[in-house]
């Protein structure tokens, strides 16, 4: 591990310094692998996407300006993974259900919020909560899951996601909101059940 900035490493990598490139890869491979894995659900395929991504990055280092390496490879990986996904996908027009808050006939909230234990910045997450979140994310409708993972987990902005999915930003925002509501409900259920334990 070196202390050099991404920008410095990038400058060296452009001059064919493979050790500097390797350091850049080490810093960004979890995010690259992660975005591909979340889209493709296959470690083997995500690993292939990571290989393609970094190789293509190496070959076009000259086109990249500034210190945007991790952002750039992250985006290449997301694009490649989604391209693969489109080829795999069988047409499926079934309307999937998604959990939303409960209101009464007058539109007032009729559920109470559980006590969410604060998770300190940088602290690791309770393993059971992690599992509950993973399960909930897997039961989201695919289109909502995709925007939720790309935006809230992987940190792409709406414009980038729109380029990837070809959906309007308005449609993405609405889907993201639905996904967050469902994820919030799952986390709330987790804390409610935990709170009711003796």
């Amino acid at each position: 591990m070196s202390d050099a900035s991404d920008e410095e490493l990038l400058r060296r990598a452009r001059n064919n310094d493979t050790a500097a490139f390797e350091e850049l890869v080490g810093r960004s491979r979890d995010r690259v692998f992660g975005v591909a894995l979340r889209i493709l659900h296959s470690e083997a395929e995500a690993a292939e996407v990571a290989q393609e991504t970094f190789l293509s990055a190496w070959r076009s280092l000259g086109q990249l300006s500034g210190d945007q390496f991790s952002h750039w490879v992250h985006r290449i990986a997301a694009n490649r993974a989604l391209m693969r996904l489109r080829h795999q996908k069988v047409a499926n027009q079934v309307e999937e259900s998604i959990e939303s808050p409960k209101f009464n006939a007058r539109g007032s909230l009729i559920e109470s919020v559980a006590d969410w234990a604060p998770t300190a910045e940088g602290a690791s997450l309770d393993a059971e909560l992690r599992r509950a979140i993973e399960e909930a994310s897997q039961s989201l409708p695919e289109s909502a899951r995709q925007v939720f993972l790309l935006h809230d987990v992987e940190g792409l902005d709406y414009q980038q996601i729109s380029e990837i999915t070809k959906d309007s930003v308005a449609a993405l925002k609405s889907r993201l909101h639905r996904a967050r509501l469902a994820m919030r409900a799952a986390i709330d259920r987790f804390y409610a059940e935990k709170g009711s334990e003796p």
């Binding site: 992660g34 998770t119 979140i133």
Partner: peptide
């Protein structure tokens, strides 16, 4: 969710 779903290679 970000904490829970971030993957490690």
């Amino acid at each position: 969710c970000k904490k829970a779903l971030e993957a490690k290679m």
